[in-house]
Design a protein around this nucleic acid. Structure first.
Lengths: 361, 361
DNA sequence: TTGTATGCGTTATCAA
DNA sequence: TTGATAACGCATACAA
């Protein structure tokens, strides 16, 4: 005999496990215990259609009894891809990212997928290379890309090139249905603006979002459309630039409130800036909503926590996150063939105390 | 010859890569190109000390030229553990989780580690089993556990049993230095309370945190200690229970402000509740800070965005996240032997507009 | 419908 | 200090 062959078929390589940890069963154990080959067990695991029902049940029985779970690392190596969903973002809005995570995780619950988080720097020259190396090295199953970086179509092209599934999230439909979940920002802002108009406001200021953000454009256009529709002129002076930050909301408001006559209402393109508008109004001793009505966008927690609470636009971000993840993994779910995840999500106006008719003077 | 051996040493298995993707070089390619064995390349990758300097440099040269990166999936399989850091939390505070993520990701930048997020349900009966299967299946390198679930010592015991590195985060030192990053909540609250006392307040209400939260206990005890120190009695009626939520802050305040005489200041055990205190005061038409001074805890964004901005306690959460991650991976970093990450982090009082001396009546 | 042989890319063992 | 060879656990091609 060439080889020692001391242990004929023991197959009990103990490995250096910490004390108290029993070695987890592998596919080999299941195969042996149920008297079939590894391949058959593999077929059971992967829901292969060509399998004798009886065999399947026997194997599944053993799997249940042993508590066997396939090793994700081994699967990843053999398949050439991981069971990981990536979340790529460069967004300063903590609440949005976290809500998105929540939605994605809801969809991933009870699946084999895990969520890995990847913030990127939009400004960096190496951003695309960073993402490329991240995707190719980790061989993610798919990624969800959050705005504003989701508006970068080079990123989507990169995913296609690499062969990584992706779903973009944004304020307009920038991609086909399989790769996009979008909110209808333009319509939602138009509705909010119409509401201000219906309250009697005609001098309405806009705190716009930063240049280069698609959401900023959509929201601004919705605002302008509603005014035009009502025959209200929008002088350039009533539009102030913002950066989606609280501080930029304050300074934008300062310039708007310096106007004479000053606006009786301000629409801010997100809640952070709307909070800044409110803050700036208070600093000047203005009463909200009597001296100034305010509407925001996002319905982040801050909108309901300031005084008075802000009228704002709520978009179903958790549902969008869930849908984005489902789009990614739908191929792996048995009963998902017939269900089509929506791509366009409807926002709604939340009316709170920050809007009232303008004061008669 | 038994085997066909059609391709002697080509080793160019094309695999089904998407068009345009060149196959990534493997350890075999590097070994061949640099004329050494796989094992030697492996030694280079893993910084093995027993290696000829000359050999090392030659291999490293080839690695640079080819842009080779080790396949994480293969390493995971061979090593029996992944290059993933988990973040386990059950916390309702979005900003804290996100700041923590930021800190961890800063530490993980330029390493081979990725961050996977895992929310758990503290109330669930299967929580421990869920975490166990998560940890054993994914074979995480280590986990960071956030409060309040980090206070559950069964979780730490589970990590030890499984052999998974962990670092807990909390409001008191619950574990040894290698497994803990803590803030000094008690001292910080005592300081904040002393500040209120120094402004002339003696009737100070407390909106406490929920029972069972260590942070709630620490903060309450710090509050009580500062009062006792100053010889101020704390009637039971001046303590209202809260749940760390905005709404609970409102209702707790309602009960406190119904007292007669009512408190001239309120310390809320977190900013969410402090925002609720402010909101409730406004609802009653009270002026803050003239009629009522308010102090919060956390320095979340909302603290600076309400009017008046809230005096609060800031704890260095991003730094704590970074430190927690560094504690986990310090074994893998070359120069980290001598640097010891701190375990106790100091919070600071941030003075804003919500505190003033009590009105003389 | 099932099994055999082989590959995935890395690390570990042990001998040279 | 290095290298040949065997794991690691699962999936696929192809044969039975």
């Amino acid at each position: 005999m060439a080889k020692p062959s001391s242990k004929p078929a023991a197959k009990s390589a103990p490995r250096r496990e910490p004390a108290g940890v029993q070695a987890k069963p592998t596919i080999n154990d299941i195969a042996r215990l149920s008297g079939v080959s590894k391949k058959t067990v593999s077929r059971v695991i992967n829901n292969s259609p060509l399998l004798n029902e009886e065999t399947r049940e026997r194997v599944e029985q053993v799997i249940r009894e042993t508590g066997y779970v396939p090793n994700p690392q081994a699967r990843a190596l053999a398949l050439g891809r991981n069971f990981l969903i990536g979340l790529i973002h460069d967004n300063p809005n903590a609440q949005m990212i976290l809500n998105m995570q929540q939605g994605i995780l809801e969809a991933l619950r009870d699946t084999d997928f895990e969520l890995v988080v990847r913030p990127v720097d939009r400004g960096s020259a190496t951003m695309l290379d960073d993402v490329r190396s991240f995707l190719t090295r980790q061989r993610l199953y798919g990624v969800v890309i959050l705005p504003p970086i989701s508006e970068n179509s080079q990123l989507a092209a990169l995913c296609n090139e690499i062969g990584c599934r992706y779903v973009r999230m944004g304020s307009a439909i920038l991609d086909d249905a399989d790769h996009m979940v979008a909110s209808n920002d333009r319509d939602a802002v138009a509705e909010a603006t119409r509401y201000l108009i219906s309250q009697g406001h005609t001098r309405i200021g806009l705190v716009a979002g930063p240049h280069g953000f698609r959401s900023a454009r959509e929201r601004r256009e919705g605002f302008e459309a509603a005014l035009a529709e009502a025959g209200i002129k929008l002088p350039r002076s009533l539009v102030a630039d913002g950066q989606y930050t609280f501080e930029s909301g304050i300074s934008a408001t300062d310039s708007l409130l310096d106007l004479s006559p000053r606006p009786t209402a301000i629409f801010a393109c997100n809640d952070e800036m709307a909070a800044g508008v409110l803050f700036a109004a208070r600093e000047r001793g203005l009463a909200v909503p009597d001296d100034l009505s305010i509407v925001g966008f996002d319905d982040t927690p801050i909108a309901a926590r300031v005084w008075p609470p802000l009228t704002t636009v709520r978009w179903p971000i958790v549902a969008m996150g869930r849908s984005a993840a489902l789009k990614l993994i739908s191929g792996t779910i048995a009963h998902a063939e017939d269900v089509t995840e929506p791509s366009l999500f409807i926002s709604t106006l939340i009316r709170r105390g920050s809007v009232a008719p303008p004061r008669k003077d």
